[in-house]
């Protein structure tokens, strides 16, 4: 396109400004406010006390660890299951329209309410999940999902994966639909097998989609809140206390506004690290496959 530089700049400004204005007001401004709370005390003096306290707070490190474990495990399973679902939904079968509606339900049920449902499903005395495991002879007795640190963690993993697989599947499905049919047809002529098409065509072409999905899911999992707040309240023994509920608790329940802000500031550092990591992966893949 041959366009005059001044026109180009005018258009660039026009296209970016609504997003930028809104983000400055609703994201950058609160972020700066927050950093101010983290380093300025009630008397208006600059202090590193709150940041330092956070670094020496075992609960913060526990929450960091819980959050990272949670994000890595859930995102891994969501990507795998989501990819399979997307492939299925992209295939032709009878009732595809209905399936494409049904599979959205987990994503559409409000987490805060579904978490109440999960509490029931997992409860040992009344819950169908422990008893089903027992009746299928997978466990010796109905397991106690919510009464044990390890099992509670598994329970929130299951609940989160269940909910977010549709999100992943939908994004990958959009990516799948963008692959031109001609490419598959030309590979059919070459006599490629189903797996061959998958490995040499589908997956490489989906890499940009995978990366976007992975990044968003990972960051979202990093901020997990409602589910934990309702299902376990971070217990037992803080085994499921992720960063967001911890910050919320600090800020609003304990009213340690400065402490909450300092913890949030460190969480922002985590996010920067994740973004840099994903940027690195993107660049490596770009060199290898020549796509973003």
């Amino acid at each position: 396109m041959v366009i005059k530089r001044s026109t180009y700049i005018k258009y660039l400004f026009l296209f970016l400004s609504p997003a930028i204005v809104l983000i400055v007001i609703f994201k950058l401004y609160p972020l700066i406010q927050n950093i101010i709370y983290a380093i300025v005390n009630d008397d208006g003096h600059i202090t590193f006390r709150y940041l330092n306290d956070t670094l020496h707070d075992p609960a913060f490190w526990n929450s960091s660890w819980v959050t990272i474990k949670f994000a890595v495990i859930t995102v891994f399973f969501e990507m795998v299951i989501g990819f399979i679902f997307a492939l299925l939904l992209n295939a032709s079968f009878r009732g595809r329209k209905i399936m494409r509606t049904i599979f959205l339900i987990p994503w559409a049920l409000p987490t805060a309410i579904m978490a109440v449902g999960w509490k029931f499903l997992f409860q040992q005395s009344y819950g169908p999940i422990p008893w089903l495991l027992y009746w299928l002879k997978l466990t010796k007795s109905p397991p106690y999902f919510l009464s044990d640190p390890k099992m509670s963690f598994i329970a929130i993993l299951i609940a989160d994966i269940w909910k977010t697989v549709p999100f992943v599947a939908l994004l990958i499905l959009a990516g799948l639909q963008a692959i031109p049919h001609e490419l598959y047809e030309s590979m059919d002529i070459d006599g490629a097998s189903g797996w061959g098409k998958m490995i040499y065509l589908t997956i490489p072409l989906l890499i940009p989609t995978f990366i976007v999905t992975l990044m968003f899911r990972f960051l979202e999992a990093f901020g997990v809140f409602d589910l934990i707040w309702v299902l376990t309240q971070g217990g037992p023994g803080n085994a499921t206390m992720a960063l967001s509920p911890y910050i919320y608790k600090k800020t609003f329940m304990w009213m340690e506004i400065h402490g909450g802000a300092a913890t949030a500031t460190f969480t922002a550092l985590y996010i920067i690290i994740i973004i840099l990591l994903i940027q690195y992966i993107r660049n490596t893949l770009k060199r290898r496959y020549g796509t973003t």
């Binding site: 994201k27 609160p30 406010q33 960063l243 967001s244 949030a264 920067i272």
Partner: peptide, 14 residues
Amino acid sequence: ILLGFFPAATMIFP
């Protein structure tokens, strides 16, 4: 994304 995923709890008050 950095701004988008900054913990929402601390955004509420501002």
